[in-house]
């Protein structure tokens, strides 16, 4: 396999109504990774995804995937995509099995008749996400978590090198969220670049190793430890986040100070040094769910 690489090079995207959704955006992912895409609503997250999916043409700059244009990359089935739940018509007359086979279209012939191999891979992928028993269900007859698993299975069936996930945790129960995170980590082990847009700030440091923070352009990019900081996030989100500071002691030089940053989903907790405080987040999440 050639070198795995996603390069967004000085990309500017303007819509035909004149709105510039993204300008001079540059970053590069060049090893197996789980990278979070973070930003407020309207910061250009979906525009960036659209540029990678080839739905919008940048008026300046270019997106390359392992050195190829996005269209070439799609022809080679390199880029798999898991849509946001609200982008799917759940009353569409297709079954779970139909959906997963859609991941194999690029390998099928002109008439898109699945071969034995396509069926075998589709089955394996459904089994991997634990949805094989649901294969004959119409997709609207599933829970939020099950729906997400089906679309993950479709993405797996495509056997790509890049996986794009748009808000994978919205409307998903905690158990499924854990299962998805585990699966994404396995995929990173297998050598994929996983690129996730998420509002769930709290969960990002737990499974992502890189992040791209944007607001109409790339504000910061790099490893989670050095980039996913309170300072960068505050710049990116401005006043859009709720920011609560706790300090239960009056002691000078207290080490018990925590700050909570939260968008509309999972909260992100920082300790006194401004680093993400993971154990506390877990405790909060668990005690929440015991109630």
């Amino acid at each position: 396999m050639a070198e795995i690489n996603l390069k967004v090079d000085d990309v500017t995207v303007a819509y035909s109504n004149g709105h510039v959704a993204l300008h001079d955006a540059s970053f590069e992912l060049n090893r197996p990774t789980i990278c979070a895409l973070v930003g407020v609503n309207g910061s250009g997250k979906s525009t960036l995804f659209k540029a990678i999916m080839g739905f919008v043409q940048p008026i300046k700059g270019r997106v390359t995937i392992s050195g190829e244009s996005v269209h070439q990359a799609h022809r080679k089935n390199w880029v798999a995509y898991v849509p946001q739940a609200e982008d799917v018509d759940w009353s569409f007359p297709v079954s779970v099995w139909d959906v997963v086979l859609m991941g194999r279209y690029g390998y099928m012939n002109f008439l898109r008749i699945p071969r034995q191999e396509d069926k075998r891979i589709a089955r394996e992928c459904l089994e991997r996400v634990g949805m094989w028993e649901f294969r004959d269900r119409q997709i609207g007859e599933l829970s939020g978590g099950q729906k997400k698993r089906v679309f993950l299975a479709r993405a797996l069936a495509q056997q790509g090198r890049f996986l794009l996930l748009d808000e994978p945790f919205t409307g998903v129960d905690v158990k499924t969220e854990e299962a998805i995170i585990e699966l994404l980590m396995e995929l990173r082990e297998e050598g994929l670049i996983v690129f996730v847009s998420s509002h769930d700030l709290g969960s990002i440091p737990r499974f992502c190793d890189q992040c791209v923070i944007i607001n109409r352009t790339v504000l910061a990019t790099g490893p989670i430890e050095t980039t996913f900081t309170e300072r960068n996030l505050t710049i990116a989100f401005g006043g859009a986040l709720r920011n609560v500071r706790f300090d239960h002691t009056d002691e000078p030089g207290s080490r018990n100070e925590y700050r909570v940053l939260t968008d509309d989903e999972g909260a992100l907790v920082f300790d006194h040094e401004g680093k993400p405080a993971l154990p506390v987040k877990r405790q909060i999440a668990e005690s929440d769910h015991h109630d």
Partner: peptide, 23 residues
């Protein structure tokens, strides 16, 4: 001949792109 491609385009244009179809 092409109902499956049109079906994917109708249901999920993003996926149609991802598998290399010209939407």
């Amino acid at each position: 001949l092409k109902w499956k491609d049109l079906l994917l385009f109708t249901f999920d244009p993003h996926q149609a792109r991802a598998v290399g179809l010209n939407t």
